[in-house]
Amino acid sequence: MAFARRNAWLNFPPRCAKARGVTQPLSFQRMILTLHEYWSQHGCLILQPYDMEMGAGTFHPATTLRALGPETWNAAFVQPCRRPTDGRYGENPNRLQHYYQYQVILKPSPPDLQALYLGSLAAIGIDPLVHDIRFVEDDWESPTLGAWGLGWEVWCDGMEVTQFTYFQQMGGYDMKPVAGELTYGLERLAMYIQNKDSVYDLAFNDAGVSYGDVFHENEVEMSTWNFEVADTDSLFDQFKKHVAECENCLGKQLPIPAYEQAIKASHIFNLLQARGVISVAERQAYMGRVRDLAKGACGAWIAHNTAKWEARFPGWAA
């Protein structure tokens, strides 16, 4: 049965979940497994989350660094995201300081990227002849990564379920070639599919464990720590040290460790913001600092690989 189902997905467009005989809405974990299966069928590497705190899946080096350069790169992964200022002590049904993004990065962007994406929606049970799916202009920009792209937010019956972006620049460098990025908001999608009003009511699996069972306490405690407890002097100190360490790595031509330090500095900055100790005036300066680090790492990554890339892709130039 499993084998037959997989084969069915090879035919495009795939039949939607209902047509496959799946009647029960997908649980949170089954939705992730389904997406893994789908994108794996379409030639993506299935990576695991990066083991560091970050504000968005785009920070994963598999996106940021791998998006640069001429090599083909197709990957999909789940990335936990931490946004300390979004914490609501587990009281708001829609906002979390820790949540999951499903990230797909395809370089170069395939010509049928929209169709592929719609196929993935059908696979998790969204029928486009019953639900109103729309591509609404939304130009994406990440000031901390020095990155921007054009694309849409994808609406499903008026709800934004995915950010769909054609990267044009990363770390201040032009994309050659352009990569397509899909970022699914997993909790939102699951709330939609399962018809739940609160994220904590989501079925995590098919055996009665809810999202709240897994994460509610985490939200309460982490919100408390983010907003009230975290030691700001120590955080300021850590920020400085990560900045220094990043520069150290850049000096030694080690782009990946340098980029990791930039991610760390970025997260520390987010924590400082949640603690409310960074004034608006300073905010720009801190963000500029992180951006410089990220740009430095991207630059080092390009410098590190240019010789190899130019040899393998004649005519390509950074």
Partner: peptide, 13 residues
């Protein structure tokens, strides 16, 4: 007002 590049041909500007 805003234009973009895409796909395999976008290896050059």
């Amino acid at each position: 007002p805003k234009a973009m590049r895409w796909g395999a041909s976008s290896t050059t500007m």
